[in-house]
Write a protein that binds this DNA or RNA. Structure first.
Lengths: 217, 217
DNA sequence: CAGTATCCTTCCAGATACTG
DNA sequence: CAGTATCTGGAAGGATACTG
């Protein structure tokens, strides 16, 4: 006998959303999956503080609800969790929440966790599509994580891995520094002067990338 | 001795947002305030199931955090809660969540609550700004609630009350019907034939309004 | 590695009573 | 009207141990 989940009992889009993803940890699990499929233990490692039972619980519910699917790698025996199309549909909402949060974030506390993976989402949240000017790529190397931003035909996308060819700009930094910059707590200039941020590339590309991410003008 | 609220301890925009508005009921309170200032008892009435202590708790926290402010009406003694500029900043995120939720909503259960006020937010969530063609107004009369949509210079806004002049279209319906249409569970045509929806106005205006709300191709 | 199972704590719903 | 204060059972969350 499966007990009923707590729900708001309101016929309203927002309440309906919160009935599904409003519980503690759920949206953070979705944040992880929005940047690519994950294994169970990866999720556990990137969500410090979540209990293993709770993670299993949430994944089971999200799978039943159709937001997440479990893919078994052929050959290898690792199991991957990934978003379904419906789950992917939450991207805009998650980005909007993250965008607001970046604006209210203060300086990181000593005990705050940070993961390089989260900077991918921060970049997506910061992008101002109307500032996409020149078709080019920017590569980011944040701690161990490598990802790149592609501008093409006025559209901007963010993906794992190295840029396809030679990027117009390569940014080296650590996760805390990047999020501090995104939160407006640290200027790219200051970060550069303290060697917490290193940019390789053309000065014009640096400017375009900064505008794209809302860091100037 | 005020105990520490539970928070995720992650230096991340999304986690920061959820630390503030991720608790149960909080975003629904903000939904109410996004459609205009409210009195305490109005909130209580439009959030069936919330305990009065919990509402007081949330309002206090949101006030301390700077998302909500309490305005005392001069003359009258009623106290109104309203969003600060920071709280208003959540509008896009809330709309994005509501938009996703509209897509997954099923047919209303008999015990589901519905409030005419919520349809204002549904309209905002449904609006496709790129479909704003002609400058005009549409008036909605949903149960007791009257509000209007204004299209001007390609921008769309939703506000309480009657249209400024003669609207190009007036829509009469009830809240359940409207949300069902927004959720794609009911076509405007079907609702019209069953007299659950009545539209007064020019046929072309009906079409433009439908396109604006994403109800036709 | 990918989860169950268990136990304990905290939070929430709902009722009710009380205050300015 | 606009809250605050208190109480209770039950559900959700957290920590840890354990298993296929």
């Amino acid at each position: 006998m499966k007990q009923q989940r707590r729900n708001y009992g309101q016929y309203c889009g927002l309440a309906g959303t919160l009935d599904i993803v409003g519980e503690r940890w759920t949206l953070l699990i979705i944040r992880e999956l929005l940047t690519g499929p994950c294994r169970y233990n990866e999720l556990l490692a990137n969500l410090p503080g979540i209990g293993t039972n709770l993670l299993a619980d949430r994944l089971k519910f999200l799978t039943e609800t159709g937001l997440v699917r479990q893919r078994r790698q052929e050959g290898a025996k690792i199991r991957l969790y990934e978003l379904t199309e419906q789950g992917e549909g939450l991207r805009e909402a998650v980005l909007a929440l993250a965008r607001w949060g970046l604006g209210v974030l203060s300086t990181p506390a000593a005990e705050d966790a940070v993961r390089p993976r989260w900077t991918m989402l921060a970049v997506e949240a910061m992008v101002d599509p109307s500032a996409a000017e020149v078709d080019e790529q920017y590569e980011f190397r944040v701690d161990g994580e490598v990802f790149h931003v592609t501008v093409r035909d006025g559209r901007v996308s963010v993906a794992h891995g190295k840029a396809d060819g030679e990027p117009a700009l390569t940014v080296h930094t650590d996760a805390v520094t990047f999020v501090e910059i995104g939160a407006g707590r640290l200027s790219p200039l200051e970060a550069t002067l303290t060697k917490r941020l290193v940019m390789e590339g053309d000065g014009e590309a640096v400017l375009r990338c900064s505008r794209l991410l809302g860091l100037v003008g």
